[in-house]
Design a protein around this nucleic acid. Sequence first.
DNA 1: CTTACACCCTGCTCGC
DNA 2: TGCGAGCAGGGTGTAA
Length: 282
Amino acid sequence: MVGARFVKVEQRRPDLRIPFPERFVERLTGRTVTALGRRAKYLLADLSSGEVLIMHLGMTGRFLVDDGGKASGGGPPLIGAYRHTAGGVRAHDHVVFHLSNGAVVTYNDARRFGFMDLVPRTELDRSRHFTGLGIEPLSDALSGETVAQLLLGRRAPLKAALLDQRLIAGLGNIYVCEALYRAGLHPSAPAGSLATPTGRPTAKAHRLAEAIREVLNEAVAAGGSTLRDYARTDGSLGYFQHRFRVYDREGKPCMRAGCKGEIRRLVQGGRSTFFCPVCQRP
DNA sequence: CTTACACCCTGCTCGC
DNA sequence: TGCGAGCAGGGTGTAA
């Protein structure tokens, strides 16, 4: 997409989780994508107009890429590669980008918890989506020290605090479960128990920071996690789901050598938490 | 300020 | 085979 121009944009419904911005199609058409980026779970495309296209996948959103046979010709398929058929619309295809390089990028989202928005680049950090966002977990900002400071005094369960995007921005349900397991921390422990009364990091805080970084780096290297509702098994999907140690493993044995524990599931804030009651003690 | 919970929406799996 | 209940990668608005 970078360097390519939107030659045609199909917006097939008025809203996803929120309405599309005013004149969405007009503000994209004819613009060139100058850069792609990310902040937390938001995908960002800088446009030649000075606006940023913000895209969020929600739970079931995905981008399907028909590169026109260029990038994948002869080589391994692109992530989500597929063939776009003009006029042939799949269920839940909500937005179709036609690019000047021949690529067709389709946004598909069954549950429509995703969204797209347009904001001036200069106002991005003040936009409603970005105000109050926490630190990037893969940046230098994440350390035992910052974890301790962020969690100091909080009585919410550790699991809930890690899912709070205002503290650390970008962790989801899977990677929080996996990070807590690797750090040997109980999901129900008070978040503040990882800090000393003065906000200094405990050994647990250091372990957690390291586990978060480790899990995310491994997942990115594996192409992410593809769960139950993917469309194709063409070898281009994420593989981290095969490396889950606790997520969706209720009733199965703990994978730590010698551990006799059995993975348990509990519900916190309406979300499932998976953990080993032996390795992750209260 | 915190924390808890319902809700947005569709599809799949499970138990009966 | 059919059907309802429960659950799912996220975020927000409201209430307590």
